[in-house]
Amino acid sequence: MYRDTDLFLEHLRPHYNDAVKYCRALTFRISIEDAEDLFQQSVLKGLENFPKLKEKEKFKSWLFKIITNEFINQTRKAFWKRFIPIDENTNHSRMPEIFHEIEQTEKNNILYHALGMLNSKERACILLFELADFSIEEIKKIQNEKSLSAVKSRLSRARGKLKEQIIKLEASQEIRYKKISSQNLGDLENETLKLI
């Protein structure tokens, strides 16, 4: 039995959008199911520990810390998950599918793919900064880092890699687009000749 469910939901509502996007972006390379698992586990953990949260105004960073830790745990468990046939979450009902409804635009796909090329800590770091608008100090606490410089250098590395990946992905998409266009032109020519 969870206490303070209503209060928890009240606190969750303003950060729900960012939390969902954060979960999806973290697990984009894996699967939608992993994003759902991550979000569900984080909500359950948050719900369980919510009464222990004394400073409710720090709810956002607290929630994102839970998500980040769950994501790291999920990454570590990935190896054993291959051998475990039973669903670990059989003792409660599954969360409704929310991520299937998220429609990916082309631009988002490029960003998600580029983020997928970063390692898990870098990915979490840049998402916390860019998407969730956390400060370096807050990210330091969320990622359990000892110094600000560690977060700064991680962020800097992540930005560099992300830029590189986005440029590569944009270039490859441009080539694909040109190929499709020339193929379509060729088809049109053939059709015209047939008609003549």
């Binding site: 469910t5 939901l9 969750l12 729900y16 959008n17 996007k21 969360m95 929310i98 998407l131």
Partner: peptide, 19 residues
Amino acid sequence: ELKNRNHENTFSKVENWVN
């Protein structure tokens, strides 16, 4: 683009699930 996306319409589902 990512920031502008809005998934708040799915919040009610999560709310029901939690309740």
